[in-house]
Write a protein that binds this DNA or RNA. Structure first.
Lengths: 147, 147
DNA sequence: CCTGTAGGTTCATATTCTGAACCAACCCAT
DNA sequence: ATGGGTTGGTTCAGAATATGAACCTACAGG
């Protein structure tokens, strides 16, 4: 299967990959959550080559995750901001970050992240919408086996 | 920045990308969570070309996410199973899946997923380890701005 | 002996990534 | 008015990866 055909796969994970299935894209989102909005800011923070950055930002705009807004007319200047759909990806990034913080041995920079509801530094915990208890691989079952 | 240099970036999200920053890799993990263990099962379920699948499975083994175990000596046959580190990625996949289920317009197959603790079909909710309340983009702040 | 299964590797071709250079349009300072 | 800086890109040629098809090993069953 060619990667370009993945769009036709009716699986939620595959559809998520259509939108964020690229490493630079994820780093761009990380920087957007931390406040980056301008092309050069994304370039410095992510380290992505300019051509790649340009293509990925367009991709995110096409998929409704970011918006390109002109913030100055002369000369024309643009900012990239997250949409609601983009902000909804925060839990995905939090889960990735938490996994690396707890399962990667490389020394890491602390994220410096705070939950404003309670004011504390926190770890993201994935819980069940029905019972509120934590969810992990041992407590999830699937109806169907893979194809 | 070359993608191969990302390993030296001391950011949790970047480190997560070193391990799972590839679309086929994520689909392989999805199928592993649903019970796939053999090469051909991964190939059929993910649709990845054999050479890519081979490379990605090796990559996951190298990073301690999966193990390659011989389950038959003559002829030699191998199975790929998730390690603890690999099973810890379940919340990441759940968050991705949930995002697509709620924010992608393409018609999707239902995941058919159940939480054994309570027995219900569920949606994954990312919560704060300190106060237990849900976490989203509006309630997370970062200490530092991007570089 | 022929077919099928499992787990790959190899190859030639197609696509994508990368760094470096370039461009447009303006601003400010000298 | 001339030169440098800022912002947001595009273009290019060469390097790296992805792809489908074919091939290989080693066995089992009919």
């Amino acid at each position: 299967m060619r990667w370009s055909e993945i769009e036709r796969v009716p699986c939620p994970v595959a559809q998520a990959m259509v939108v964020i299935g690229d490493s630079w894209t994820v780093l761009i989102l990380r920087d957007a959550f931390r406040g980056a909005t301008r092309f050069d800011a994304f370039q410095r923070a992510s380290g992505a080559p300019r051509a790649v950055l340009s293509e990925r930002l367009s991709h995110l705009v096409t998929h409704g995750v970011m918006e390109r807004v002109q913030y100055e007319a002369h000369p024309p200047r643009f900012a990239y901001t997250l949409t609601d759909r983009g902000r909804a990806l925060q839990p995905v990034l939090l889960a990735m970050s938490h996994w690396a913080e707890t399962h990667v041995e490389t020394p890491l920079r602390k994220p410096g992240r705070r939950h404003t509801t309670c004011g504390h530094r926190f770890a993201p915990v994935v819980t069940c919408s029905e019972c509120g208890e934590p969810v992990d691989a041992a407590t999830v079952t699937y109806d169907r086996a893979p194809a």
